[in-house]
Lab assay of single mutants.
Amino acid sequence: KEYCRTLFAYEGTNEDELTFKEGEIIHLISKETGEAGWWRGELNGKEGVFPDNFAVQINEL
């Protein structure tokens, strides 16, 4: 499994977007979303897309 840590808080504006606080760990599902600048991940049981410049991939939890 791949993970990323959020660098900033983000408020999702669409139903398919994740909302998160700074410093949260998102399970990274895919970097290929069909839309440049967006990754797909899962946080707190919800799957959605989020801007990749708001997070950095990490090697271990």
Rank of each mutant, 00 (worst) to 15 (best):
W38C: 07
V56E: 14
E15Y: 09
T33K: 07
K31E: 11
N59Y: 07
G45C: 08
E42W: 08
F8T: 13
T19Y: 06
E47W: 04
L18H: 01
F8Q: 15
F20Q: 03
D16Q: 12
E42T: 10
E24D: 13
N53Y: 12
A9G: 08
A55V: 15
T13P: 04
W39N: 02
T19N: 11
G45V: 01
K21G: 13
E15M: 09
N59T: 11
E11C: 09
A36D: 12
W38R: 09
G34A: 09
E24W: 01
H27E: 15
Y3E: 04
E11I: 10
G41N: 01
D52W: 10
I58W: 09
C4D: 00
C4E: 00
N14C: 15
R5M: 08
E15D: 14
T19M: 04
T33Y: 09
P51S: 04
E17W: 01
G23L: 00
I29M: 10
K21I: 08
N14S: 13
E11G: 07
K21E: 14
I25F: 08
E2Y: 11
V49N: 12
N44S: 09
E35I: 15
I29L: 14
L61D: 15
T13F: 06
W38G: 04
L18G: 00
E15S: 11
R40C: 07
D52H: 08
K46D: 07
K31H: 05
L43F: 05
G45Q: 04
F50D: 03
A36C: 11
E2G: 12
E2C: 07
G45T: 02
E60R: 10
L7R: 08
R5I: 05
T33Q: 06
I29G: 02
I58V: 14
T13C: 15
C4Y: 14
F20R: 03
T13I: 10
L28C: 03
E35T: 15
L61I: 08
K31Q: 05
F20C: 01
L7H: 03
E24M: 09
I29A: 03
G45D: 06
W38P: 02
N44K: 14
I25E: 06
E11P: 02
I25N: 06
L28Y: 02
V49R: 15
E11N: 12
P51H: 01
E2W: 05
H27Y: 11
Y3L: 11
F8M: 15
G37C: 04
I29F: 03
E24V: 08
F54S: 15
A9S: 15
K46S: 07
Y10V: 04
G34T: 12
E47Y: 10
V49W: 11
V49P: 02
P51E: 04
E32N: 15
G23W: 05
N53Q: 13
G45I: 06
A9H: 12
A36T: 13
W38V: 09
F50S: 01
L7S: 12
L61V: 14
A55S: 05
L18I: 05
D52V: 10
Y10W: 09
E32A: 09
S30V: 02
N53V: 10
D52M: 15
T19H: 09
L43I: 14
N53T: 14
I58E: 15
L43Q: 03
E60Q: 11
L43S: 06
Y3C: 10
N53L: 11
N59K: 08
E2V: 09
W38D: 01
Q57N: 12
K1G: 09
G23E: 04
A9W: 06
T33S: 12
R40W: 07
E11R: 09
F50T: 02
E24I: 04
R5C: 06
N44C: 08
L43W: 04
G23Q: 02
L7G: 04
L18A: 05
H27R: 14
D52A: 15
P51G: 00
Y3G: 04
L7W: 05
E17T: 06
H27W: 08
A36S: 11
A9Y: 08
T19G: 06
G12T: 06
G41P: 04
T19V: 03
T33F: 08
E11W: 09
N44H: 13
A9I: 05
W38F: 11
T13A: 15
K31I: 03
A36I: 10
K1E: 12
G37D: 04
L28A: 01
T13W: 05
E24Y: 02
F50K: 00
I26M: 04
K1S: 09
G37I: 04
E60D: 15
F50P: 00
N53F: 11
K46N: 08
G23N: 12
E60G: 14
E17P: 00
E17S: 09
N44D: 11
E35H: 12
G37Y: 00
S30C: 07
D16V: 09
Q57E: 14
L18D: 02
N14P: 02
D52F: 11
T33D: 08
F8C: 13
I29W: 00
R5F: 05
F8W: 11
L43D: 06
Y10H: 07
K31V: 08
N53E: 13
Y10F: 10
P51D: 05
W39I: 01
E22H: 02
Y3D: 04
A55P: 02
K31Y: 03
K46C: 13
F8E: 14
L18E: 04
G45R: 03
N14I: 10
L7D: 06
N53R: 15
L7I: 13
N53C: 11
A36M: 10
G48M: 00
F20I: 05
T19E: 03
T6E: 03
G23F: 01
P51V: 00
E24A: 08
V56K: 13
T6C: 04
E32T: 11
Q57R: 10
G41F: 00
G34C: 12
N44F: 06
K1D: 07
E11A: 09
S30W: 00
N14H: 12
G45F: 07
N53M: 10
E32V: 11
C4R: 03
F50Q: 02
L18V: 05
N59P: 13
R5K: 15
E47M: 08
E47V: 13
G41V: 00
N14M: 10
G34S: 14
G34D: 13
N14T: 13
E15W: 07
R40E: 04
E2L: 11
G23A: 02
I58H: 09
T33I: 12
G12A: 15
L28W: 01
K1N: 07
K1L: 08
E32P: 04
I29K: 09
N59G: 13
A36G: 09
W39H: 03
G48T: 00
D16H: 14
D16A: 12
